[in-house]
Write a protein that binds this DNA or RNA. Structure first.
Lengths: 343, 343
DNA sequence: TTGTATGCGTTATCAG
DNA sequence: CTGATAACGCATACAA
């Protein structure tokens, strides 16, 4: 059985009759080392099968070339695309990504934040758990100059980098689009609204759009899901569609909800978009597949991941920062497809 | 500006007039430390805001309590569920998960394997890149007793743990199901078959099922996608449906392909399942949403993740192993929904 | 351009 | 039950 004892720079040094510091420098192309030595060192390192121990390097420099990602779950299309964007960007700069799922639990988030801190990540990207209201567990990163970026589901009052879309404006645009299609009684599917999150913002946009166009709002037209699942969505949709006067349009705060609305409407014999126009949110893959194709609001997940990672990387380089942390807004667009197009 | 210098066990030790070794032990409930001391240490550690530096611990013990996950991408539903299963299981045992996406590139996979090794992960779970044929870059883990589990897309000849489904049997079952529904001319959508991967196995099952039931196979009935995307699927489906004698059934090796087949068929005015019965593979979320609901083969992603993680954890504990690495087969089932149900 | 020496924070060994 | 000390592998300040 071949028990490869790990090769260290010390092994290379003794083989080459050089000092470990020379090896260390040569391996990272330090300018003060001669071309010749660098070449020689790299060659034998390769030959001996040297693999740098990033733990040791990390301990030494108190930096690890890993970015911690703390999100509710990896299985939602938006979030897995976000991760993908982060991971690709990080990888390009030689950074790794460590992932933790809070499953929307506040307690899990607190403990994971601590764990991330313990592994000395170089930066943290977080999308808050649904249940999180207090964010003091993120203070440790700020206090220690570890770049912190909140993305998508962000706290209101925490002074750090944030990468978001304008949910209010998006909700407004979506609703206004329905109005332009001739809808006058527009329902709204939302979720976890009591936590004052991004869904609330979208709803604000919805309400203001109604107001602007002199459409009366009504409590019965707004259904608040506990969890964003297809079956919950179906239940909520049916509630909406079973009203004495059902809506002639629905703005759903997520594509899954929108899709369940489409299916429920079809099952009830209603035509989409003729009898009821529907628009979702996120531009999940399914929106292009469902029949009729779902109109939706674009939500640039991978791009948000990329930008978040870039902010982290930039701020690792220049640790000392003024106390100004910008908020990056990404554009969203109304993507008009079949489910809402009447004209 | 509050510059929290990190609290170390040394700080706790000097505050309490104890040795660092005592602190270290107390913190992990070592039996040789008095209850009283343990309590005292833990209390002041808490008060001082001590966060253990896992890097240092890792360097010392050459083990890191992290599991490396190397997969083609995180955005496929099967893989994100796999990750989720891994992450949850790992977290329960206090392990973290570090993720890398090969994007189906062999070169990326090689480099990432090296990087994982460099960060001294305690174990590795991998689903091979589509393009990978040679797997020698995983030898380093085996040689150093780092548990390695291949999952789903696994190499044929590598002697290590494997967690898979019986793709051959599943392909056979799927095809036979269509035959039982009365299909006599069954098309097949597959992908990247030249790399001798799991798709090939499913196709073998398909072919053998045809043979068993005396149905003739035909080259024109098998379409091989380069990449598994919806649009590619539509192209492939149309090829199949435009044959002089189109098939009356399709077994697609993935749900995305199956869904594109359904949509293409509907667009051509064919009824599903009456004119053409369709079955997919994976039981992706979309299969329950598409109209008609897609029959499919279950593919227990989260469970496979969980089991893979459990194997890793078990084998970290008892490092020395006989040279026997079991292959774990998970059950798949034919999930009959609307798209294939004729009787 | 290269070498020497030290410390990062923890744990394990050995001693008391 | 507790303490002193070495070691993990690397990177840097300082020296040559």
């Amino acid at each position: 059985m071949e028990e490869n004892k790990d090769i260290t720079i010390y092994d290379i040094a003794s083989k080459l009759n050089l000092a470990t510091s020379t090896i260390s420098r040569a391996l990272k192309d330090h300018h003060s080392i001669s071309e010749k030595t660098i070449k020689k060192v790299k060659k034998t390192a390769e030959e001996m099968g040297y693999v740098p121990n990033t733990l040791a390097a990390g301990l030494r420099g108190n930096k690890t070339k890993t970015i911690g990602v703390l999100i509710p779950t990896v299985t939602q299309p938006f979030l897995s695309s976000l991760i993908s964007g982060i991971e690709i960007t990080a990888q390009k700069s030689g950074y790794n990504v460590i992932i933790m799922q809070s499953n929307d639990s506040y307690e899990a988030e607190v403990s994971m934040a601590k764990s991330l801190y313990g592994s000395r990540v170089s930066g943290v990207i977080c999308s808050l758990a649904m249940k999180t209201t207090d964010t003091s567990h993120f203070q440790q990163f700020v206090s220690n100059n570890i770049p912190l970026v909140f993305v998508d589901r962000v706290p209101k009052e925490f002074n750090t980098f944030r990468v978001i879309i304008d949910n209010y404006a998006a909700g407004f645009k979506a609703t206004e689009h329905l109005i332009e299609q001739g809808c006058t009684r527009i329902g709204h599917l939302t979720a976890g609204s009591k936590f004052g999150n991004l869904y609330t913002e979208r709803m604000r946009g919805y309400l203001d759009a109604l107001k602007k166009h002199n459409l009366s709002e009504s409590k019965e037209l707004i259904v608040d899901l506990q969890t964003v699942t297809y079956t919950e969505g179906v239940k909520a949709s049916n509630k909406l569609l079973s009203l004495k006067t059902p809506p002639d349009g629905i703005f759903a705060s997520g594509d899954i909800m929108a899709v369940s609305a489409i299916q429920s409407a079809k099952k009830k014999g209603m035509r989409v978009p003729e009898d009821i126009a529907i628009i979702g949110f996120n531009n999940d893959p399914i929106s292009e597949i469902i029949d009729p194709n779902l109109s939706t609001i674009t939500h640039p997940a991978a791009k948000m991941g990329q930008i978040s990672a870039e902010i982290i990387l930039k701020n690792i380089k220049s640790p000392k920062k003024e106390d100004v942390k910008e908020i990056t807004f990404l554009n969203t667009e109304v993507l008009i497809r079949e489910s809402s197009k009447r004209k």
